[in-house]
């Protein structure tokens, strides 16, 4: 992990997605990143079998946001026993769309010369936050008013010892943009927007009270099923 520090967008450490015992000795760990506007699946493939592995390929099942490999999985030399290769697979979002449960679930098939293996993982929604997600202020006010309060989702972000300025700049590094900030009765109210790769806008109000490490995040979106995942992204960005 930690690669994201260069571009600002947080990258989680790699996790094991496919254990060797389930894939005839092939172990895959990975994470997702977004750098300079491009999404990548960063993979480590380890050969824990006694034979050489070759002829690798990867395929995704249809998924909620059309994530797909933008290039073939390129592993130039056969992978010998106990060898690991690190690959960054570029992704695009122009693949086939099918709503998954959970929304950010991704089913992956990997083949090599031995067999075909399947696993599923979930991606953090912030890799889908585009860099032109700063909503025009008039549009924000109109949209906020237009989406009924019943469709507002509210979450608590606990144990976050940051002030409003630090919160704004940390979130902006991951393409969550602060449009306005107000101080009412001592508490900071941040109005923020972000846009997903498929054009869905999310509007946010983040309430920060001085001396209280627990924030209130209110989200409004015309596709409310994304809200819990956006909240999860806020947690991830703010706490790393």
């Amino acid at each position: 992990g930690g690669v994201g520090a260069l571009s600002g967008s947080y990258v989680a450490p790699k996790a094991v997605w496919l254990p060797a015992m389930k894939a005839k000795g092939l172990e895959i760990s990975g994470t997702f990143s977004r750098q300079a506007g491009s999404i990548s699946m960063d993979l480590s493939l380890t050969n824990k079998a006694l034979q050489v592995m070759s002829d690798f390929a990867i395929q995704f099942n249809r998924n909620s946001f059309g994530l797909a490999p933008a290039a073939p999985l390129q592993i130039n030399a056969p992978l010998g026993p106990n060898q690991t290769v690190d690959i960054s697979l570029p992704l695009n979002t122009i693949g086939s769309v099918m709503k998954m449960d959970p929304l950010n679930n991704l089913q992956v098939a990997v083949k090599n010369n031995i067999d075909v293996f399947y696993f599923s993982t979930v991606y953090p929604l912030h890799v889908l936050f585009v860099d032109d997600g700063k909503m025009e202020r008039q549009m924000f006010l109109a949209t906020w008013k237009d989406i009924p309060n019943e469709n507002e989702a509210q979450f608590q972000i606990k144990d976050c010892p940051l002030g409003a300025e630090a919160v704004s700049s940390k979130l902006q590094g991951s393409h969550v943009f602060t449009i306005a900030k107000r101080n009412v009765e001592g508490q900071d109210m941040l109005y923020q927007s972000l846009k997903l790769t498929n054009g869905i806008w999310v509007l946010a109000e983040l309430r920060i009270q001085p001396g209280n490490p627990s924030f209130t995040l209110s989200l409004k979106c015309r596709a409310p099923e994304v809200c819990p995942h956006v909240y999860q992204a806020y947690e991830t960005i703010l706490k790393n």
């Binding site: 202020r137 008039q138 006010l141 906020w144 306005a180 900030k181 107000r182 009412v184 009765e185 508490q187 109210m189 109005y191 109000e205 309430r207 209110s218």
Partner: peptide, 20 residues
């Protein structure tokens, strides 16, 4: 912050959200 005439609108929103 930009002076686009909307500063006041955001103030009203924040106020209304704090004291509904």
């Amino acid at each position: 912050e930009m002076d686009d005439g909307l500063d006041e609108a955001f103030s009203r929103l924040a106020q209304a959200r704090t004291n509904p």
